[in-house]
């Protein structure tokens, strides 16, 4: 199983993502520069956090116009797992791969601390190793993580069980306490908290590792068993 971490100018959580997959999950992973990446040879696409293009115009907006987004859309259409964390989530929103948009945090502060999350849906390919209703802790680090969507979209997200993680103590003003959502087909996850920064009990928190293990389980169930 091969993971790709797409690196944009200004990405800064790409190494953390790489480390999580390579050293904690023990799977193959490459850092791929957004300009010369060929995503067709990868099974999972990871979009890391950071400040692609310095957050010019809107977070993720400039990155969403780069050519690689077409490849990411193709991978998503092929039902490959696509995970966008923090700025990666913003890129997925700006590309239209996920519904909604990001606003500056309610209190206008950049926030960098651990948050408690509730697992709302434990049946996605990203969350099967968690318990529905279970509480986990993940670090957040963002200035624009205030998820916004209109009422109709929010109702749709709820009806389709697309909300995967919510904050128990909403730090940024997100609609419906949303911390992470999947697309309708369930193979594109965007989330503001950083699972890749919580993969080792040695460093105090391994709650994020189960997210990567969920992807691995999903892939094995679909590829190895039927091989």
């Amino acid at each position: 199983m091969k993971f790709a971490v797409v690196v944009f100018p200004g990405s800064n959580c790409d190494r953390d993502m790489y480390h999580a997959v390579k050293d904690s999950l023990n799977e193959e992973v490459d850092l791929v520069w957004y300009q010369d990446a060929d995503l067709s040879e990868y099974d999972v696409i990871l979009l890391p956090g950071g400040f692609s293009y310095g957050d010019y115009l809107r977070s993720g907006a400039i990155a969403s116009t780069s050519n690689i987004v077409q490849q990411i859309k193709e991978a998503a259409a092929q039902k490959k797992p696509v995970l966008g964390v923090c700025n990666g989530f913003q890129v997925l929103l700006e590309s239209g791969l996920l519904p909604g948009a990001m606003l500056p945090n309610r209190d206008l502060k950049f926030m960098c601390h651990h948050e408690e999350l509730r697992v709302e849906n434990a049946e996605t390919m990203f969350s099967s190793e968690y318990q529905k209703g279970g509480l986990i802790h993940l670090p957040i680090a963002h200035g624009e993580g205030n998820y916004y969507c209109d009422d109709a979209t929010y109702q749709q997200l709820k009806d389709n069980e697309q909300i995967v993680f919510t904050y128990t103590n909403n730090p940024n003003g997100s609609t419906g306490d949303i911390a992470g959502i999947v697309n309708e087909t369930g193979n594109v996850l965007g989330m503001m908290p950083h699972p890749e920064r919580a993969v080792e009990s040695l460093l105090g928190n391994a709650d994020g590792l189960r997210l990567f293990q969920s992807i691995l389980m999903y892939w094995r169930n679909n590829h190895v068993i039927h091989a």
């Binding site: 115009l57 916004y148 209109d150």
Partner: peptide, 9 residues
């Protein structure tokens, strides 16, 4: 529509 504004917000 495509870039300068985000029609969602």
């Amino acid at each position: 529509e495509k870039l300068l504004a985000n029609p969602v917000i």
